[in-house]
Design a protein around this nucleic acid. Structure first.
Length: 765
DNA sequence: AAAAAAC
């Protein structure tokens, strides 16, 4: 009851209007040819009610009827009746009801996956069309391909560009933000649930339970603040250089690197960071193409575990007839500044700048053979937990960074997507927090000792899912602090006392300013996707947050594309950082196949539908939120269950839609770049870029959603002829070779990519 | 220009 407060006037306005208003409207106008029937109302007017509805489920029946038919019910309002605003409610629930009536449910019922009404919630209740039924049963059995193959030839789908608008326009209210927002958090069952799961505390255990671990652990150094002095003495020399200017030439560096036994390395020092290993400039970069000649000659270390010095690059020209990489224009050619050194400083925004790489110690897989997490310095509880999570032995990036983190050093680490970075910083972070508290009681209301910042809420949630069990295994608590959800629970957790905070910059800073989050005792700060966190708009809040952490707090910066974009932050906050990368991370050692389809714009919609009409999980990237929504709807209408993920959705929907892909209830997720970084879904085997990315880093991160932890994956990017040049340059910067193929709707290449027919490679293999 | 990140 309480939950269902009626319209909470204030809230809806706050939430929705600012964000959605303009955009949505325009979408509707364009596509619906007029005010969407329900949609229009939903968007705006209904909002007020949204609150109610949302809660309604809790109170009464979530299932279907918007409950409000009866005058007594809070949901009941004139508005609902069709007058105006309230209409909204109607949408979610009612539509569900309507859908059922249409028999949609029948189809789904047989399916194990998702109930129709569910879908509705999610996708803003789009009306289902009758034509869809033809695809009966598709909801359930994934093997949709099979059933549909005949029935839904690509060509006949009503999805041509523009079709969506005409055909469905009028009736498709699917964009209502309200709906989405409606459930927002507040109270809705699902959301809460999500919340709850993540909050370890909610597991129901009393706050202080389980604090056993603390005392028992060997306490190396209890307090890192004190001991974390930077040992310039021994590390100074070998410390990776961050300075652009004084960066020694590759040749000379061998020498100083000799002393690589820093504490971080001691455990693995011998095995991994040898003096003789040239300090690979990881970066040697792209900027200095001139050096590349030499690089090419080197042999590829990836196999042998040799330390990679340079990224081997294919000399042959690719299928497109482009010149071999070496001959292609260098970064300098396109880089407006032309100053490789200018890194950290912002270049012209908008430019796809390739920052100079960071020099780093490189660790190869072979070097960590036989090494265990225990060997790296982690306690047994943590090791056992990792094993339980499936991480039996450390990946290279983990073997490299764990000892350094445990030694209290600031660390910069680069490991390609899916290489295990979360555990690389998470496990040693937990160990250190534990050590710092050894012997102390975990007091009620204690302030956090560590904070992990991520660029998106989904990523923060995901990181917590990985770290929480590790922390819990030693009696430490974590909590998530991110926006889009009520802060009450988060503040409550903080009041009880947590050890590790994982969150996004906005809410974290908000709570700091409200005096509800005290980072003064925070001794470790982690920036995941660090380079992204250093981009314009993100870096300022991040800097302010870091300034709130304890003096001399340890900083850990991780990213698959870590480069000198983080220089400004490093200069201010890091002291003598250890920098690591993994050897042999080049395309040749990757498990991802890249392809570019050059298409006619008019075929785009149909080609996309054809591409996602497959058995495996597919992640589609769109440049804008509206297009992501549109595509999801398009696929759905074509009989391919799909959901979207972008910033216009309320957090509950964001979380739910992502979960739908993870759980396999849908096989297609259409997202904006909110899902480009960090998100891990086990078995995405195809990434489709409906819109080519503007930056090479974005390309690398998006494509990194597949091919994780050694699995194979495929990435296809759709471009029009006019974009070929830009795409070529982008791939160059990403150091990826991908064939460009002209494709039309029914070409075999599409069938191949979708996996409906074996590829040439498959056949030969 | 877009997206993300607080209310």
């Amino acid at each position: 009851m309480p939950k269902n407060k009626k319209p909470r006037g204030g809230r809806p306005a706050a939430n929705f209007e600012p964000r959605y208003g303009a955009k949505k409207t325009s979408f509707h106008d364009r596509h619906n040819g007029g005010p969407a029937r329900d949609g229009a109302r939903d968007e705006r007017g209904a909002r007020a009610d949204a609150g109610d509805r949302r809660s309604a489920p809790a109170a009464g029946g979530y299932d279907r009827r918007p409950g409000s038919r009866s005058a007594g019910h809070r949901g009941y309002r004139p508005a609902e009746a069709e007058s105006g605003a309230p209409k909204q409610r109607w949408n979610a629930s009612e539509r569900a009801g309507r859908d059922e009536a249409r028999g949609i449910r029948n189809r789904a019922e047989s399916g194990r996956r998702e109930a129709p009404h569910h879908r509705n919630d999610e996708r803003s209740e789009r009306p289902r069309y009758n034509d869809r039924p033809s695809v009966g049963g598709r909801f359930d059995d994934r093997p949709r391909r099979d059933d549909r193959g005949g029935q839904r030839p690509t060509g006949q789908r009503p999805t041509g560009p523009g079709t969506y608008r005409d055909e469905r326009g009028g009736d498709r209210p699917r964009f209502d933000r309200d709906d989405r927002s409606r459930r927002d958090d507040r109270g809705a069952g699902t959301q809460r649930q999500g919340f709850r799961d993540n909050d370890h505390r909610d597991g129901g255990r009393p706050v202080r339970d389980d604090r056993r671990g603390g005392g028992e652990r060997p306490r190396f150094n209890s307090d890192r603040g004190a001991e974390r002095p930077r040992f310039n003495s021994d590390r100074g020399t070998e410390r990776p250089r961050f300075d652009r200017d004084e960066r020694p030439r590759r040749d000379d560096r061998g020498g100083d690197r000799a002393r690589s036994n820093d504490r971080g390395a001691d455990r693995g020092g011998e095995r991994s960071y040898d003096a003789d290993r040239a300090r690979r400039a990881f970066d040697r970069d792209r900027t200095q193409r001139s050096y590349e000649g030499g690089r090419d000659e080197r042999s590829r270390p990836s196999t042998g575990g040799a330390y990679r010095t340079e990224r081997p690059r294919p000399l042959t020209s690719d299928t497109r007839g482009r010149p071999a990489r070496n001959e292609r224009p260098s970064r300098n050619d396109w880089n407006a500044t032309g100053r490789p050194e200018s890194t950290g400083a912002k270049f012209t925004p908008g430019d796809d700048v390739v920052h100079e790489r960071l020099e780093a110690k490189s660790v190869a897989a072979v070097e960590v053979d036989g090494v265990t997490f225990g060997d790296l310095g982690l306690g047994s509880n943590i090791v056992d937990t990792l094993v339980g999570m499936g991480a039996a032995t450390p990946f290279p990036i983990q073997a490299a960074s764990i000892p350094a983190v445990l030694a209290g050093r600031d660390v910069l680490a680069r490991g390609r997507t899916g290489s295990g970075k979360t555990i690389a910083f998470g496990a040693p972070l937990v160990e250190r927090v534990l050590q710092s508290q050894a012997g102390k009681r975990r007091e009620f209301g204690r302030s956090p000792r560590a904070i992990i910042l991520a660029p998106t809420r989904e990523l923060a949630l995901q990181i917590d899912r990985t770290i929480q069990p590790i922390a819990r295994s030693v009696g430490l608590f974590t909590t998530q602090i991110y926006g889009g959800v009520p802060q009450g629970r988060q503040v409550g957790a903080l009041k009880k006392g947590v050890d590790i905070v994982i969150g996004t910059p906005g809410r974290v800073e908000d709570l700091i300013n409200q005096g509800k989050l005290d980072l003064s005792d925070c001794r470790i700060a982690v920036l995941d996707e660090a380079d992204h966190m250093c981009e314009l708009g993100f870096v300022e809040p991040v800097q302010r947050i870091l300034r709130h952490t304890a003096d001399g707090s340890q900083k850990l910066l991780f990213s698959a594309t870590l480069d000198r974009e983080v220089a400004a932050l490093v200069d201010e906050f890091l002291v003598d950082p250890a920098v690591y990368e993994v050897a042999g991370e080049d395309q040749d050692s990757s498990t991802i196949e890249h392809r570019v389809l050059v298409i006619e714009h008019r075929d785009k919609a149909d080609i996309l539908t054809s591409l996602v009409d497959r058995a495996g999980k597919t992640l589609v990237f769109a440049r804008t939120r509206a297009y992501a929504d549109m595509l999801a709807e398009q696929f759905d209408d074509a009989g391919i269950p799909a959901v979207s993920l972008h910033g216009d959705l309320n957090q509950a929907k964001r979380t739910r839609n992502l979960e739908r892909l993870t759980s396999g209830r849908v096989n297609v997720l259409v997202a904006t770049d909110v899902a480009a970084r960090g998100i891990h879904v086990d078995d995405i085997d195809l990434v489709v870029q409906a819109d080519a990315p503007d930056e090479y880093k974005t390309y690398l991160h998006r494509s990194g959603r597949t091919g994780r932890a050694g699995r194979s994956g495929r990435v296809v990017t759709l471009i029009t002829r006019q974009r070929q040049r830009r795409m070529t340059e982008l791939l160059d910067r990403a150091e990826i070779d991908a064939p460009f193929e002209n494709a039309r709707l029914d070409d075999d290449v599409i069938e191949e990519i979708a996996g409906r027919v074996p590829t040439a490679a498959d056949l030969t293999a």
